[in-house]
Every structure is written in C-alpha cells, then in structure tokens.
Design a protein around this nucleic acid. Structure first.
Length: 274
DNA sequence: ACGAGCGCCTGTCGGC
DNA sequence: TGCCGACAGGCGCTCG
C-alpha cells in the first residue's frame, strides 16, 4: 500500500502522537504477539518475542518505504507492502480482523500491525544495513543532485516508470507518486531513461520531490479502505482519473499497463519519444 | 541489462 | 442473485 509519504506520515504519528493517541517514544515493550507467523521475515519466531521484551523505543526513522523503530539493542523494521496498516490503541481494545503483530507496552498501549493481504513483513535486526543497503538514494536527500540523477538516468536503457519504481535505483516511489511525477514532467512512462537530457532530468527530479512533499504535507493519500487520514488523493492529476479530463488540456486520462502495473497518463501531454 | 511472467494473499468491483 | 475475471499503493524470483 503505502509509499514514501504514507510511511513518513506513520513515522510522524508514532513519534509525535495524535489527539487520540500518545507518542510511542520512550515506551518499553512488555510483550510482543506474532499473530501470523509468515509476517516475520527475520529472525526465527522462537527468540523474537522475548528479545523484544524490555527494550525501549528510542526513535523512529524511515528509509524508503521501511519504517525503522530504533530500540535499545535492535531495530524493528516494518514494511507495509500493499495492504499494511498501523494503529496505536489500548491493549484492552479488541483484536481486529487481519491483525498480524501486536507490540504491547508497559503503560497499556500497543502498536498493531494490520495487513489484509499478508504481504507485509517485519524484521528485528541488530544491524539494519544488511537489509537496507540494496536501496538506491532517498529522493528527498539534497545530496542527490540533478547532475547525479542525470548521470544515473543516462546509463540506463530502461523505461522510465519501472526504473523509478525500482527501489535499487531510487528508493520510496510507488505506483501513485511515479505516475504523478511523470505527468507533471510531461514524460511518457515508457520513454527510455537514457533519452532524457539534463534539463528533463532536473525537472523530473524536481517533480518527484514536489509530489512527495505534497504527499507528506497532506499526510499521504487515502484510497478505498486501505489508508486513513490522508488527503493527497484530492490532489491526484492522473492517478485513478481514467476517463476524466486532463487539467492541462482536457484530453481524457488513459490507463495503460507498463511493467505490469496500471499506469495513468495524459496521452496528449505525455508523448512517447524515445 | 532488461522485460515478462508468476507467486504471494485477500477483498472489491463490474460485467454477464 | 451468483459467478468469474480483473484489479489493487509491493517485491522477489525465474526465465529468456
């Protein structure tokens, strides 16, 4: 489900709390309950639950679409994949359908990991880099310059959309924000990366950052039942707008398939010229 | 290096 | 109404 802005929103909610729920910072783990074994990627389930007990949450981080919960000795890493969701609630609350993992704290609150489709994964690692080092640069990291991005694109003979969604190339973009960034850049998702010049590469990077920052500012995007509380769906210009008029030229938005993913374009504003 | 196909899962929606 | 395929914000694998 969520992409970079949605994970960033969860990070903020868990760190700062909301009017309904407290911050989880500084809370100490009393108990960990794994309700669906395959949700745990690493380590083996045996030592996992006892290893968590007694550790205190020191900070929350994010790398790409991974949420990092820094504990005393380990990092608890969550990936929500397609349908994952997080709730903070009292441990007296009923367990919801599709809850896969509960992290219970000494003060009676808990973090619930809910995941209808069971694609989500959690890791408990003493050394997170083993998992995270395969990722490409963070798009919002200022050390990624337009010149670097241009060089990265120039060396790839690959369609833009699958490349931007490749987490090893650049980390954090998914289907929504990729479609939105390409539309704003007037680039066709099937254009080859190496065909972009410096100006186009620079504009693409700026638009990637703009849509991600707009998504973060809106607390993410809520679609269907999958994610609650975000507002970025109201700013979609192509995603989920098949048949509706392009805001720039009025041409109906089309849905095509690129890299086996549903892809939304304005066929007039985004010409294919490889 | 790159793209296609498929598996992993459950649920919803549209068409017949 | 019931059934059946398409589709869903992700990612890892194999195979040409």
């Amino acid at each position: 489900m969520p992409e970079l802005p949605e994970i960033e929103t969860f990070r903020r909610i868990l760190r700062e709390g909301t009017p309904e729920n407290p911050s989880l910072l500084g809370k100490r783990v009393q108990e960990a309950r794994l309700l669906w074994e395959r949700t745990l990627a690493e380590p083996d389930p045996d030592g996992f639950q006892t290893r968590l007990v007694g550790q205190t949450i020191r900070s929350f981080g994010r790398r790409a679409k991974y949420l990092l919960i820094e504990l005393d000795d380990d990092t608890l890493i969550l990936h929500l994949r397609m349908s994952g969701d997080l709730r903070v609630e009292r441990d007296s609350a009923p367990i919801a359908p599709h809850d896969r993992f509960l992290l219970v704290f000494e003060d009676g609150f808990r973090l619930a990991f809910n995941d209808t489709r069971k694609f989500g994964r959690i890791w408990l690692l003493s050394e997170p880099s083993t998992l995270l080092r395969k990722l490409g640069p963070e798009p919002l990291d200022e050390s990624l310059t337009p010149e670097t991005f241009y060089a990265m694109l120039s060396s790839r003979q690959r369609q833009l959309k699958p490349l931007l969604m490749d987490q090893g190339f650049i980390a954090g973009l998914g289907n929504i924000y990729t479609d939105e960034a390409l539309y704003r850049s007037h680039l066709h998702p099937q254009s080859l990366a190496c065909a972009l010049d410096l100006a186009q590469s620079k504009a693409l990077l700026e638009n990637i950052r703009a849509v991600l920052e707009a998504g973060i500012a809106a607390n993410g995007a809520s679609i269907d039942w999958v994610y609650r509380g975000g507002g970025f769906q109201n700013e979609f210009q192509v995603y989920h707008r098949k048949g509706e008029p392009c805001y720039q030229c009025g041409t109906p938005i089309e849905r095509i398939v690129v890299g086996q993913r549903g892809t939304h374009i304005c066929p007039s504003c985004q010409k294919l010229n490889t």
